[in-house]
Write a protein that binds this DNA or RNA. Structure first.
Lengths: 241, 241
DNA sequence: CGCTCAGTTGAATTCAATCAAGCTCTGTGG
DNA sequence: CCACAGAGCTTGATTGAATTCAACTGAGCG
């Protein structure tokens, strides 16, 4: 799969770009590599020289805490640039790793900067992308601070399914989510046991079914209601529902 | 106080700009107004046409939840642009209000965009500013998800004091923080009672003293340790300590 | 077959929320 | 000047949600 095509597809979900802009994006040099599940793409403290584009699979950002625990911050699908956040930043304040096997393209910051200079609209589109990321962070603050365990779980599932669907990565009512219960807990600020009980809850109430790496939505309206999910913060141009 | 001078002072804390860049920034049209405590500058759902610059006092971002509760997301000091996050976004996914009385300057998006086109370095500086905001959001996710009540409080105090100090807004070991316990709870995902006990805890252990709108640091190293505070994520060029 | 790893479940514990009452300012009006 | 009201803070008792601890299950694999 062509990494730059994936990026362009993603940018089109929230921005409009001219034909010339797209051509220039296609000229970006980039190299693709495969990451194993759990493998780090970049670590806290590193000085990034390249940006990653998710080509296939899923990446995640996380903080490493002094006691060795992890806090997952966000999840990234095909077309996302999980460290666009670090374009203008010297030292990584978080790490990026693969959730399941993944293919990632690397683009040198230098080339991106040159492109932003010659094609301001492209810069604006990527900037917009970073702002949407920030909106997702804000939502995570609220989710992890103000909602009960099942509601948090429901909200995260809604977000992931909605974004997957917007990117055409769902089939019927299921999307791929190659993640363990432990990691779900590290994303939501919950213990493994609580994650399990929250999942059982969603399953029993027939809202959603998470099993062995795939998420199935049983009742979208109910799930969105349970998680107080309102997709406005994702700022997509076209709603996938 | 000149709003654009405040902005420039802030941008210099994390970016370096040429003399011409600074001159162009000074040319931006802007109008200042005073906000009462708790007054909204912009609401969830609004379509922003201008960006705010905090000239004096403090602003905050917050989410309004379906049940009417608030989740505060971040706090903003003089020089910050609390809705730079919304430059490329149609509809506000959060609101911005004053914490205590505040003076805010408004700059039309149109003029900012023109400036970004003519002076890409200025755009990069503001972009960088939005990325630092995002880093602060990430830290808030971790803080509210993975730490105990007193640790959360300690971390928030460290961040606010550190940023205040970097902007020259502290006197000795105290900074102004015109906020109520209730709002602290709404920022940290804690109830009023728990906030109070956490504060008592910090007071008893002689780490920090929060009282009637001002925060005094008694033991910086101890407080930073308690809150696992590492200022790296603020990405400032010079450390204020 | 037995090992490990991931998920499941129950019981005990802990932390924070909730509830309820009192306190302490501050500003206001008699 | 004092009485009073009200908001914001403090504190204790109770409840409840989530954590922790521990045992168990089941799938996958050498």
């Amino acid at each position: 799969m062509d990494p730059l095509a994936v990026l362009i597809k993603k940018l089109k979900e929230h921005s409009s770009l001219s034909q010339e802009d797209l051509l220039e994006i296609r000229r970006l040099p980039c190299s693709v590599r495969e990451l194993d599940s759990h493998e780090d793409f970049i670590r806290q403290g590193d000085r990034p020289k390249v940006s990653a584009i998710v080509v296939e699979g899923m990446l995640a950002r996380y903080h490493l805490l002094p006691n060795g625990a992890r806090q997952y911050l966000s999840f990234h699908l095909a077309g996302d640039m999980p460290d666009s956040q670090c374009l203008f930043i010297e030292v990584m304040d978080h790490a990026v790793c693969a959730i399941g096997k993944a293919f990632v393209a690397s683009v040198p910051h230098r080339d991106l900067m040159k492109l932003f200079d010659s094609r301001p609209k492209v810069g604006a589109a990527i900037w917009r992308e970073t702002l949407i990321d920030a909106a997702i962070f804000r939502e995570a603050i609220t989710n992890n601070s103000a909602r009960s365990a099942p509601a948090r779980m429901a909200h995260l599932f809604c977000e992931l399914f909605y974004r997957s669907r917007a990117s055409g990565l769902t089939r019927d009512d299921t999307c791929i989510l190659p993640i363990g219960l432990n990691q779900l807990g590290e994303a939501l600020g919950l213990s493994l046991a609580t994650v399990n009980r929250a999942l059982a809850n969603l399953r029993d109430t027939d809202l959603a079914d998470f099993k062995s790496g795939s998420l199935t939505i049983r009742n979208w309206a109910g799930l969105a209601d349970c998680g107080e999910f309102n997709p406005r913060y994702l700022h997509l141009r076209r709603e996938p529902f």
